[in-house]
């Protein structure tokens, strides 16, 4: 299955922890209740300090982000184990996070929920891209292209995690591959 994600990027830096991705006061919303799932999306990245991120990921009043791709630095998704983090990003219509490195639980939650492709870059892309730049992400070629300059940046392959996310998460994958009975 080929997979290309194209659109504007939202750029953040190191140590974006799950409190910044979805602040703790919104954790009472349940990801498995559809209306609450949508609301989680509307608060995605709401914990980023305004002083460092005056351009907001979700515009005031909007339910979704206009950025299908987030570009981050080191240790993206560190902090708490809340699955609400990848879920909020997915619910905001974001499809991939490209970062220099991911915290373990966040990476695992991306795969288990199938909400987001967590892709490691080979370069510090958060210094190269600016919020609003257009990019094209090709998961088969493992590269990202900056649309304006045509410059290509290599990404690390997702490996076994790719098929799980493509299927829609851990349970969907386990059913599809016969690991657990399809119910």
């Amino acid at each position: 299955m080929s997979k290309i994600i194209r659109g504007k990027v939202y750029v953040v830096r190191d140590n974006i922890d799950t409190d910044q991705i979805i602040p703790a006061q919104y954790l009472s919303l349940l990801p498995n209740v559809p209306e609450e799932y949508e609301k989680l999306g509307s608060h995605a990245m709401a914990g980023l300090p305004d002083s460092s991120y005056p351009e907001r990921f979700i515009k005031p009043g909007a339910m979704d982000a206009e950025y299908p791709i987030i570009i981050g630095g080191r240790n993206f998704g560190c902090g708490s184990s809340r699955e609400h983090a990848p879920v909020a990003l997915g619910a905001a219509n974001c499809e991939a996070v490209v970062a220099e490195g991911f915290a373990r639980i966040f990476f695992r939650n991306c795969v288990a929920t199938g909400e987001i492709y967590p892709i490691e870059s080979t370069q510090r892309l958060c210094e190269i891209f600016k919020t609003g730049d257009e990019a094209e992400l090709d998961l088969d070629k493992n590269e990202m292209v900056a649309v304006e300059t045509g410059q290509r940046y290599a990404l690390k392959p997702l490996g076994d995690a790719r098929a799980v996310i493509d299927a829609g998460g851990l349970f969907a994958y386990a059913k599809k591959t016969g690991m657990i009975a399809a119910g």
Partner: peptide, 10 residues
């Protein structure tokens, strides 16, 4: 833990 906003205000 002390990432920005951890104890409330961002």
């Amino acid at each position: 833990r002390n990432f920005p906003g951890r104890m409330g205000n961002r």
